[in-house]
Design a binder for these strands. Structure first.
Length: 430
RNA sequence: GGGGAGAUACCAGAGCGGUCAAAUGGGGCAGACUGUAAAUCUGUUGGCGAUGCCUUCGGAGGUUCGAAUCCUCCUCUCCCCA
């Protein structure tokens, strides 16, 4: 059996691991789980870390379980600074769960008939019928308040100078999550829970419950929170989260996100988010160091993830689009594109539709950019950016004086507007 | 319940009768350098038919030729004492 802990270790995916975990995983096929909140019907790339832990787990021969936190998601984990959660109704919950499962199925094998087939469960299914009295008698009885208060997440909130305090509901959160672990332990012989480093306290409440209530031994493993070298939040752009759902984040944007990762982050990310071997990654790093401008690491990262989350075909069109937009493309190359290619290339790019008549009479650039399209929020800003040389039409710089005419149209219908280096918009004339 | 401090642009934070569309920093946007990286440097950051005009300094009134600045009331925030 492949050494799972060792695998995560060289990938930099271990923050904390309970003693004995490694031995257990070498000795037998272990069932392990990661929890995910079903707050939306799509995952975003922040979720990918947990999924990749399970992916590696399964490829090491163990059995991954995805726990959808239908119940816990309603309460809200005090470790985060999250506000009160909204209670999801059951149809939404089920819908989200199904959508998420489809996405995860690209990483985990739910179909194999082998003993390590992946499994998805929802804690709503066993928490729903649990009565309050039943819970405090059967579960709460075994854990002391003293123990619960010792958790960092609780201490911070109670003693904090910020003095926010915490509600009883949030205080109870660790018991509910801990009970999940106990339930999975009894039901599936699940002996390992994994998660982000902020989950350590909650996970150990679970192992404690298993020890006291079931007299069993269970383990914990956490990975460091993913950071960016510049201190920003991982997985967020100005435009928001990077989602796995192509409707929310187009494959092109998804691909671009990974291509834009800084060198400092690329080495870490490629270990975490791809399945490439240690020697292969070290080889890539060596090549990258010799010719950093080719961005071999970023490309490998973007390739693997785009294929994994979307498809080979999506990757190809993302690459094609990127080459046209960021390569040596000129107005000439743009004009040579046939309509079909052009549309597929710009599929993931924001689009605006305008009337053909508006191009007839001396339309000036600022009216075009901030009037009939909403590429800029105001004419002032459009003018300013043009003055700074930051606006291009069909890859040629324009100025405030430029008039927009039909002769600019590509294929008689399109204008490619570029704002700054990276923002593209396709204007379609009807 | 008593006393005090405050609310300014995306955020933090100056300004305390005209020279204020409002210092400074952060953030954002753009440019240069590069590799669609990082760092750095530069410009810019209310709107518009633009040597001018309009809307902004918690809200509503008032004083004044003139208010972010002074007065009154209201709303909210923070601190101290009980």
């Amino acid at each position: 059996m492949k050494n799972f802990v060792e695998e995560l270790r060289w990938r930099g995916m271990i923050h904390d691991v309970m003693p004995g975990t490694e031995d257990l995983l070498l000795k037998e096929v272990v069932t392990a789980y990661v929890g995910i909140d079903p707050t939306a019907d799509s995952l975003h790339i922040g979720h990918l870390v947990g999924i990749m832990m399970l992916r590696h787990l399964q490829s090491c021969g163990h059995r991954p379980v995805v726990l959808v936190g239908g119940a816990t998601g309603m309460i809200g984990d005090p470790s985060g600074k999250s506000q009160e959660r909204n209670l999801l109704d059951e149809p939404t919950l089920r819908h989200n769960q199904e959508s998420i499962k489809k996405q995860i199925a690209k990483f985990l094998d739910f179909e194999t008939k082998a003993e390590n087939q992946a499994l998805m469960v929802n804690n709503y299914d066993w928490m729903r019928e649990f009565s309050f009295l039943g819970f405090i008698r059967d579960v709460g009885k075994h854990i002391t308040v003293n123990y619960m208060m010792a958790k960092d997440s609780v201490k911070k909130r109670i003693s904090g100078d910020t003095g926010e305090g915490m509600s009883f509901t949030e205080f109870t959160y660790q018991l509910v999550q801990g009970y999940d672990y106990l339930h999975l332990y009894k039901e599936y012989n699940c002996k390992l829970q994994m998660g982000g480093s902020d989950q350590w306290g909650n996970i150990t409440t679970g192992t404690e419950m298993i020890r006291r209530i079931a007299g069993g031994e269970a383990y914990a493993l956490t990975c460091p929170l993913i950071t960016k070298a510049d201190g920003g939040k991982f997985g967020k752009t100005e435009k928001g989260n990077i989602w796995l759902d192509p409707e929310r984040t187009s494959p092109y944007q998804f691909y671009q996100f990974w291509i834009n990762v800084s060198d400092a982050d690329a080495s870490r990310y490629i270990r975490i988010f791809t399945l490439r071997s240690k020697s292969e990654i070290e080889q890539l790093e060596a090549e990258h160091a010799l010719a950093p401008h080719t961005r071999i690491l970023q490309k490998a990262l973007a390739n693997d993830l785009t294929i994994n989350v979307h498809s080979e075909a999506d990757l190809q069109s993302a690459i094609e689009a990127s080459e046209i937009l960021f390569g040596k493309g000129t107005t000439e190359t743009l004009r040579k594109l046939d309509e079909k290619t052009l549309l597929s290339v710009f599929d993931g790019v924001p689009q605006f539709e305008i009337e053909k008549e508006s191009l007839n009479n001396d339309l000036n650039a600022s009216d075009f950019l901030a009037g009939i399209t909403a590429i800029f929020p105001s004419k002032g800003e459009a003018r300013r950016t043009m003055k700074e040389g930051g606006v291009m039409f069909n890859r040629e710089k324009i100025t405030e004086e430029t008039l927009i005419t039909q002769s600019m149209l590509l294929n008689d219908r399109y204008i490619l507007v570029q704002r700054g280096k990276k923002n593209y918009y396709l204007v379609i004339v009807k």
